[in-house]
């Protein structure tokens, strides 16, 4: 996360620390905060920093096979420079995977956040019935693991068991192949939308509820309809939470792995390298080429970081513009 975002996130927290008077005779020991943070820092070093460093090191090396590659000493690790990177970038499978994820993300993110916003506004509208039950049911898929969600939807897409296909068949209509061709994007996107809408709805609804009621009262006195209040008052005021959910949705999209992997046993049209992350897994454990897997992994990490920081900068610039106006 950028320092800017960090600063934004910590704005609430600052007050406490600044209120603490200067250390008196009984002031806190200097080392105390570091001791409290020690477990987090140690875990970060061992399970985040070290693996990333190791991945970078692996990506810069390769295995050289001498002779027939038999016996000890026939295979040794040598420096490869950026060769793994140029190979990975020239690999059409990686580009194909990236394009597939881009198409998938272009469906998932707008649909999921659009639905989350609509449902959050509905939950916030006082004349809508069944809001408590609706909120709970729409949030329910959050409790269901992605693998099981993909598995359940996978069966619903499978012609031999799906109620959809059976109904279409009874009506004499053509049965769509949901697990192949372009429909596969919709099939996968549907799983993500189903699983993610509820959580985002909760985030947006929470920030809607933080808006003081006087604002609505004022807007209503000015003759605003419920719709106008939603569009002109509520949506602009929850923009920060929309930015946050958008950001996390993009990251989750880039990391899609378990849903396409789970659909693979049900269809032949999901290749092992459907998404770039699946390609990393395939390279590392399928083909056993950890060096090129590491290079691909580093490339994906860099793209993710670049996209995240670019997005946060853009969001920050727009916020500043808004403040200036």
């Amino acid at each position: 996360m950028t320092p800017r975002m960090t600063r934004r996130m910590t704005r609430h927290t600052k007050d406490v620390a600044e209120d603490v008077p200067r250390p008196t005779r009984r002031g806190p020991r200097r080392g105390a905060p570091y001791a409290f943070l020690a477990p987090a820092i140690v875990l970060f070093l061992l399970f985040f920093a070290l693996p990333i460093g190791y991945a970078i090191q692996l990506s810069l090396r390769t295995v050289e096979v001498q002779g027939l590659g038999l016996g000890s000493g026939a295979r040794r690790e040598v420096w490869a420079g950026l060769a793994n990177y140029t190979d990975a970038l020239a690999d059409p499978e990686l580009l194909d995977g990236a394009l597939r994820v881009a198409v998938y993300g272009l469906i998932v993110v707008p649909v999921m956040l659009g639905l989350a916003l609509v449902f959050a506004l509905l939950l916030d509208a006082e004349r809508v019935r069944g809001r408590r039950a609706g909120r709970l049911l729409i949030f329910l898929p959050y409790a269901i693991p992605g693998v099981i969600a993909a598995l359940l939807w996978g069966f619903l897409y499978l012609p031999s068991v799906s109620p959809l296909h059976r109904t279409l068949d009874a009506l004499g209509l053509p049965e769509p192949d949901l697990l192949g061709g372009n429909a596969l994007y919709l099939a996968l996107a549907n799983i993500a939308v189903w699983g993610g809408t509820g959580f985002n709805m909760i985030v947006i609804h929470t920030s809607l509820r933080a808006i003081p009621a006087e604002l609505y009262e004022a807007a209503r006195l000015d003759g605003c309809s419920q719709l106008q209040i939603a569009l002109r008052v509520k949506i602009p005021l929850v923009t920060p939470s929309l930015v946050l959910t958008f950001f996390f949705s993009i990251i989750a999209t880039l990391q899609v792995f378990s849903e396409p992997t789970t659909l693979r046993p049900l269809t032949n049209s999901v290749p092992t390298t459907w998404s770039p992350l699946m390609k990393v897994y395939q390279d590392a454990f399928g083909t056993g080429d950890i060096h090129s897997a590491a290079a691909t992994a580093v490339i994906i990490a860099l793209v993710t970081l670049a996209l995240s920081f670019g997005f946060l900068r853009a969001a920050g610039a727009r916020a500043r513009q808004g403040e200036a106006r």
Binding site: M1, T6, I41, F44, I52, F257, V280, A297, L305
Partner: peptide
Amino acid sequence: IFGVLLTGVLMPPVILAVP
């Protein structure tokens, strides 16, 4: 420290899991 810890959110799990 807070900023560095938070960047962990951005790391795709496969990138971490393989190493």
